[in-house]
Design a protein around this nucleic acid. Sequence first.
RNA 1: CGGUGUUUAGCGCAGCUUGGUAGCGCACUUCGUUUGGGUCGAAGGGGUCGCAGGUUCGAAUCCUGCAACACCGACCA
Length: 573
Amino acid sequence: MRTSQYIIATLKETPSDAEVISHQLMLRAGMIRRLASGLYTWLPTGLKVVRKVEQIVREEMDKAGALEMLMPVVQPADLWEESGRWQEYGPELLRIKDRHNRDFALGPTHEEVVTEFVRKEINSYKQLPLSLYQIQTKFRDEVRPRFGVMRSREFVMKDAYSFHLSQESLQQTYDKMYQAYCNIFERLGLDFRPVIADTGSIGGDASHEFHVLAESGEDDIAFSTESSFAANIEKAEALAPKDTADAATQELTLTDTPNAKTINDLVEQFSVNIEKTVKTLIVKASDDVDAEYIALVVRGDHELNEIKAEKLDEVASPLEMASEEAIRDVMGASAGSLGPINCPIPVIVDRAAAVASDFSAGANVDGKHYFGINWSRDLELPTVADIRNVVEGDPSPCGEGTITIKRGIEVGHIFQLGTKYSKAMNAGVLTETGKHQVLEMGCYGIGITRIVAAAIEQNHDKFGIKWPNALAPFQVAIVPMNMHKSHRIPDIANAIYDKLVAKGIEVLFDDRKERPGVMFNDMELMGIPHQIVIGERNLDNNQVEYKSRTTGDKELLDVDDAVDFVLNQIKNA
RNA sequence: CGGUGUUUAGCGCAGCUUGGUAGCGCACUUCGUUUGGGUCGAAGGGGUCGCAGGUUCGAAUCCUGCAACACCGACCA
């Protein structure tokens, strides 16, 4: 490709609304442009990268035995009524009406459609197991689209679905997919980790997320320092402390604390150790409980884990924090002065808070806290549960080492769905014995467009993107200097270009009448891994210069060796 | 959905307090100059100042309403 025939569309300045580096670089490198909130146009350079990702995913899915198909983006509401998700899914599901006033949705995912397909077409156990996938545009009406294509409303996703007679068969395919995902991210050249995950609203049993590690990630991942254990912080268990509470050394005292509204205030004003404080959060109770609200108690330095909390039988799901008015109504005090003593509603205390001694907490009277509280002595120890986020240094749930926490970008997610959709939509086959049996299902997603952004988060420097070879929109950039003033330069540049193209290499030949600095900067911004610089100075010695974008290394090559050298660089990368 | 803020050329911004010919940098076009890391000079094109209404002789500027967008929070495969 010659730049004169192409859209370079690079930007010198960073658009003001791009916060994360991948968003900035994708705009500056001329990969994407924003059309509206959460909607992006892919320019030729960006699309080339998307296609690279798609192709690798496609090859590995095919290898894993999945069959590619393509389902509609627009889906009839009836199917969603059948699965129950027309009600459940909420405003993220964009609903539309056709000219006959019939309800449809823009597909955020395709469990319903694929299940409908399978229940019609697959009738016998002999046709199982079956894995189907597609690579397609999805739409989710995100509350808050941000970070460019990292969290956009419209995005390209690979979604796969598998169907089985038994849980064992599902497990086998799940394992195969797990391996296929590892292969994919390996081939993409990304630093990634599979992590144990919550199944979220899709529902089901086993689940892993695949995360690309990056500072800008939106998820916290808990790793063990000693083993390969990794889990989304939502799911990482905070083990019960081995020790029991220390013996009480302080008297219970009620103290005026008019200016202590937060744990930090309390710690600063009364110089107490933050680990000797607890905070009390009020949430809606579930219908199982004979109370409208439940108090959750965690140590002052810990954070409530909402996923864990809403899984408790006593707590309403989805989790709902009590409003300020409700708190005042129920507790008789405002949020800054709550505590477990004299608490009028049921209390659930976190494992760590349950072994605190001589600790302080609100008194459920405005402007008053208790100090020197001890469980058993001053109040009965309530129900204990794991309701907090793990923190650095906690013992790892796998039993080996301690926890470290890193940020990750979720680029893939695999689930064992079980029979959630097949049962609701009555998808089954006849077994060997002629009995009708509901299918076990698995579902496997990869965010294609999100991977493009994640790859940039992981591979960039101050000059721009540094594409891993597998993702680069072009393998080689030819940068001829002052070509219009020379006969030699265009001759050599064209010859090298033709030879590389004949070898099937994607080459970007910068034939613009630009200054060298402009060309260098654009090629580096776009992250093209291999650069050949052709100028009069080196041609006097019959040489051209090679430069690697990844390492920055430069090397002088004989003109005749240049093509083979570059081919080797590409092959060995 | 709440809080805050923004909206003036393709992009980044000034002008608004105190109403009076719409500006700057980058980008774009043409010419010249320069040529191994975003050169320099000259000339040029490009705007219903987010939309609607109001006040006024006169509104980018003041008032009212609306919209879009962004950030923080809540939410979320």
